[in-house]
C-alpha cells in the first residue's frame, strides 16, 4: 500500500518535471489562451464600445502579467472532452446538492448527521487540486474544510452518504479535465 502510494506520487512528480522541460511551447500557448480569456471578459464587461479598448488592452496585458506571477506554471490547456463531460456532471450535481439541502432544511426533524472525513488526493499540487477543493463544496453533502498538502478534510452533512466514492469520481473527472493521470487507482 505504502509503496504503491509512493510510486504514484513519484509518477506525478515526474509528470510535472516533464511539463516544465517542455515549458516553452506551453508558455506561448498559455499566454495566448490567457489573452483570449481576458479579452473576452473585457468584451463582456464593456460591450461593443471600441474606444474602451484604449484602457482594455493595457488592462488585459496587466492581467496576463499578474496571472503569470500568481500561477507561473503554464499548464496544459484543459481537455475539450473533459470540459464537455464535466459541465453536465457539475450542473447536475450542484442542482442535486441544492435539492438535498432544501430537503434537509425543510424536514420536520433535522435530517443531518454531520461528521468530518479525511481524504488523500492524488491530484498534483496546483490548479487541479485547488479546483478539486473548490468543487467539493458545491457537490451534494460535502464541504471542503481544510487542505494540508494532499490531505483534504471534508465536512459531510450526512455520514451515511457514499462520500468516498463521490470524491473518487470527482477526482477522476478533474484528472481527465486537467489531463493528469491517476494510474492504478483501482489497485489500492
Amino acid at each position: 500500500m505504502e509503496q504503491l502510494l509512493n510510486g504514484l506520487r513519484s509518477f506525478i512528480v515526474q509528470k510535472n518535471i516533464h511539463l516544465s522541460i517542455h515549458g516553452h511551447a506551453y508558455l506561448g500557448r498559455s499566454v495566448l489562451l490567457r489573452f483570449l480569456l481576458f479579452s473576452a471578459v473585457w468584451f463582456v464587461l464593456t460591450g461593443s464600445d471600441t474606444a474602451s479598448w484604449i484602457i482594455g488592452l493595457p488592462a488585459v496585458f496587466l492581467a496576463i502579467g499578474i496571472s503569470h506571477v500568481i500561477s507561473p506554471y503554464p499548464s496544459a490547456p484543459l481537455s475539450f472532452i473533459g470540459v464537455c463531460s464535466f459541465l453536465p456532471f457539475f450542473i447536475r450535481q450542484s442542482a442535486l446538492s441544492g435539492i438535498d439541502v432544501m430537503r434537509r432544511a425543510l424536514c420536520r426533524q433535522l435530517a443531518v448527521n454531520p461528521g468530518l472525513v479525511s481524504y488523500t488526493t492524488f491530484l498534483p499540487e496546483g490548479s487541479a487540486r485547488i479546483f478539486f477543493v473548490n468543487t467539493i463544496s458545491l457537490l451534494p453533502g460535502t464541504l471542503s474544510a481544510d487542505l494540508q498538502e494532499d490531505r483534504v478534510t471534508v465536512h459531510t452533512i450526512d455520514k451515511n452518504l457514499a462520500i468516498w466514492a463521490n470524491m473518487q469520481n470527482l477526482e477522476l473527472r478533474i484528472a481527465i479535465l486537467w489531463r493528469v493521470k491517476l494510474h492504478k487507482r483501482e489497485a489500492l
Partner: peptide
C-alpha cells in the same frame, strides 16, 4: 428561501455553510 431556513435551523457553523453555499448557488 430554504437557504435562509437552513442558515437559521442548522446546528453549527459547518452545516450552515452547507445550506448557504449550495442552496443559494442553485437559486
Amino acid at each position: 428561501l430554504t437557504g435562509t431556513v437552513g442558515l437559521l435551523r442548522f446546528p453549527d457553523i459547518y452545516t450552515r455553510l452547507h445550506a448557504l453555499t449550495k442552496a443559494d448557488n442553485v437559486g
